[in-house]
């Protein structure tokens, strides 16, 4: 296997006495889309912010492209990019002006050509002269995606990029991400609490709960591990019960977990939570 793009070694983030991320170790392989999954407050954004150098870990170390993040931050950021539903590009500027500025910040040559390619890819070439603040949520997300691909990043961090999109737009965005990943072989770290996102986009998933890794593997591995039919059911079960299946009891133990899950499902409150779950869908998981 080629050297990993990113390695986080036991990173912990404490805010005062509160531990937001607890001794998290993970790695991203070249060309891999890794999903960081978890309920609100699980520590996904905090973990990503540490990997971007926006937060300094209380403990642990991070290597990106084989280099230490604290020592080579600017060098690493040149080949990285970021796209989040929780930021905006300056609303007064026109779309092309924002892309021009970010292209220059990342030292992109031939920025006009690059901009046109990306606008075309995201199907928004007609928005080039529009004022950024006037874009709809879907248009704005696609502009963000253009911005985050300007420098042809080796590593792309996306914090809930589909959070404010309708299902149709979310689908388009997922396809675009898949497309870019296939074409350019970039590595992506993708946080979400939308299970559709994760099942469709991610090659592998790290399931965070209260700052710790609950389990990790392909979406199928995880479903088997929890003996659930969909990731959504897994998610709801974890959200409601804080069901801490010990990490490391991974895929091999799937059968055991399945047996346990059935046992749990037959007893009172847990069972109700699990069976009522599919009807509730995203309603209580999608507020942020």
């Amino acid at each position: 296997m080629a050297a990993p793009i990113l390695v986080a070694d036991k990173i912990t983030k404490r805010f005062g006495d509160f531990t937001a991320v607890d001794s998290l170790s993970m790695s991203i392989q070249p060309g891999e889309i890794l999903g960081l999954l978890g309920v609100n407050g699980a520590g996904k954004t905090t973990a990503m912010n540490m990997l971007l150098g926006l937060l300094i870990p209380t403990e642990g170390s991070i290597q990106v492209f084989g280099k230490d993040l604290t020592k080579h931050r600017v060098e690493i950021l040149k080949q990285t990019n970021f796209c989040s539903a929780y930021t905006n590009l300056p609303s007064n500027l026109r779309v092309w002006q924002n892309l021009h500025v970010f292209a220059k910040l990342y030292g992109v040559k031939n920025w006009r050509q690059r901009m046109d390619e990306l606008l075309e890819l995201m199907e928004i070439p007609h928005l080039k002269d529009r004022v950024t603040g006037h874009l709809s949520a879907g248009e704005s997300t696609r502009l963000h995606l253009c911005k985050s691909l300007l420098n042809n990043p080796r590593l792309l961090m996306m914090d809930e990029p589909t959070a404010s999109l309708d299902p149709d737009m979310a689908d388009k965005v997922r396809k675009a991400i898949r497309h870019v990943q296939r074409e350019h072989g970039i590595s992506v770290l993708y946080t979400s609490h939308n299970m559709r996102d994760v099942e469709e986009v991610c090659d592998r998933v790290v399931f965070l709960h209260k700052g710790k890794i609950l389990t990790e593997g392909t979406p199928d591995d995880i479903k088997r591990h929890f003996a659930e039919e969909s990731l959504e059911n897994v998610f709801i079960r974890v959200a409601r019960s804080g069901d801490m299946v010990p990490m490391g009891a991974a895929v091999e133990d799937a059968e055991e977990a399945e047996a346990k899950a059935h046992a749990v499902a037959e007893t009172g409150a847990e069972a109700e939570a699990t069976t009522r779950a599919p009807g509730r869908k995203e309603g209580d998981a999608s507020s942020s």
Binding site: V74, Y86, N88, L105, Y106
Partner: peptide, 18 residues
Amino acid sequence: LEDVWTRNVLNVFVAPIR
């Protein structure tokens, strides 16, 4: 403050700027 007002702070601080 312009970056704060337009919620652009993170985009600026994850860009390769010293």
